[in-house]
Structures are given as C-alpha cells and as structure tokens.
C-alpha cells in the first residue's frame, strides 16, 4: 500500500471527513452520537495503524497499546498531525481553507475548547482501549513460536488470516495432519469407522498427548491380484540357447523388469 509508505498523503485523503463534519467539536450534536462515533472509528483506526506502522518502522518500537492519535498529535512537531488544533490552519493545503473559514464563524471560548478537547481525548482513549482489548483477544487465539515476543497488531491480523486459511484447508481436505501428501487419495471413497464407546485419556495411556484418532479408514486388497502383478514385476528371464553357439549356455538372468512392462490388472 502506498499509504503505508507515505502517511502524509494518507492523511490528506482520510482526514478530510473530520473537517467536513461541522459537529466534530461539539458534544451537543444534533446528529446521533453513536453514528458519529462509528464514522470516526473507521477512519481513526485506519490512521492509527498507518501511523503506528510508520513510526514503528522508522523510529522506535512504540508500544501499540498506549499510543493513540491524541498522543501523536501533541508530541509531533509536524502540525499536519495536529488535526485537533483549529489554529494550525496555515500549513494545511489550500483547498481546505474554505471549509475551515466556514468553521471559524462559530467562535468558541478557550475553556470551551479545552473541555471539548478533553472529552474527545477520553472518547478516543476509550475507543482505543476497546480495540486493543479485541486485539488481545485475537492474539490469544493465534499460535506463536515459544520464543516469540508479543505480536504487534499488524502481525496479529496477518497471522490470523493465515491461521484461518490453514484451518479452512484442514477442514476441507480432511487430511491427516502429519503427512499431508500421503497416498490415501487412491481409494475413491474413504469409509471411516469411528470407535464405539469412549473414555477420557489418562496420562498412563501410551499415546497420551498425541492427537486422538478420528477412527480407522477401511480398505481391502486382493492378494491374488497383487501376487500376479508381483510375478510379472520380478520375473527372471530365461534365454534359450542357440544351438550354433554351443559355448553359450542358456542362462537365467535376474533382471528386474520394471518399466518395459505394461501391467494390466
């Protein structure tokens, strides 16, 4: 994704809704509060991951749980991030000026602005906390290597996708886990018999800890057919002698007749 490599262009395109939204700076919205929150969530979430990704890669290993957009906006020297500050309009791209001018018409007091800022920060923190909790939940379901550090959010998502695919394939193919390329596909329809009567495994069992058997698949062979094929495969060649060459005795050569045979069973 280009936006990951260049968070600034990403911001340009995705931050515009905030400035379009007239009710952004007020808690007494005429619109449904939840709707607005949801709307914001999507965009902020996306931004967060991008910003995190960017900072993680380029700067220091940031602890994802405690960094939110609010922190970034205040710690960053670049005013581009400080979308919450209405005064930093000078560095924004010109096309947004008209919108901001419109907003300026509704002048608010300094304390009013601080209250709004605090309320927005609280909301944002709560929102991030819920996302982080959900990530923690997802993380706990993903198998990791024993020495692996705690997964970052992006790795959590990436591994989750891989793991779901893996499970889906496992269910679909119904293959033995250990040897996925076994020759069990030879029989057209596999009939599996499950055990009757079950009991819980105990540590004394010889196979405790091994995955339990799903059952036994049933098959048969015709030994006569196998024997016939085997006779052809391991045939010893007996060559008759040519009476004109008496010194050449007829002999048995132990030749494995493998490829030249066209076995039809």
């Amino acid at each position: 994704m280009d936006t990951v490599l260049d968070p600034f262009t990403g911001l340009d395109s995705f931050s515009s809704p905030y400035f379009d939204d007239d009710d952004f700076f007020t808690d007494h919205s005429s619109r449904d509060h939840l709707d607005t929150d949801d709307f914001l969530d999507e965009d902020v979430d996306f931004l967060t991951s991008q910003i995190q990704e960017y900072y993680k890669d380029s700067r220091i290993a940031q602890d994802g749980d405690y960094c939110d957009v609010g922190n970034f906006s205040f710690s960053s020297s670049s005013s581009t991030f400080s979308y919450g500050c209405a005064d930093s309009t000078s560095e924004l791209s010109p096309h947004r000026d008209g919108l901001l001018l419109k907003r300026r018409r509704r002048m608010r007091s300094e304390t009013e602005m601080q209250q709004l800022r605090q309320a927005a920060n609280v909301r944002e923190r709560r929102r991030m906390q819920s996302i982080n909790d959900a990530f923690e939940g997802l993380r706990s379901h993903i198998p990791t290597l024993p020495y692996e550090k705690r997964l970052s959010k992006v790795d959590t998502l990436r591994l989750a996708i891989g793991y779901i695919n893996f499970l889906a394939e496992l269910v679909q193919s119904d293959m033995p886990i250990r040897n996925p390329h076994s020759d069990t596909l030879n029989q057209p329809k596999k009939v599996i018999i499950c055990h009757r009567g079950t009991r819980s495994p105990s540590p004394n069992d010889p196979d405790y800890g091994l995955p339990p058997l799903a059952g036994h698949s049933l098959s048969w062979t015709d030994e006569k057919q196998l024997k016939d094929q085997n006779i052809i495969r391991t045939a010893k060649v007996w060559t008759p002698e040519d009476p004109r060459k008496l010194h050449l005795k007829s002999s048995i050569n132990n030749i494995e007749n493998e490829p030249p045979f066209n076995c039809i069973s």
């Binding site: 250990r178 995955p211 799903a214």
Partner: peptide
C-alpha cells in the same frame, strides 16, 4: 478368500 481387509488409523479428526 484372496481378499484381506485393512484398518488404517486416521489422525485427522473430521471436526
């Protein structure tokens, strides 16, 4: 008979 019957353990549970 010339037939023999085989039970092969199946490790993959059908979920």
């Amino acid at each position: 008979s010339s037939y023999s019957f085989t039970y092969t353990p199946e490790h993959s549970a059908p979920f």
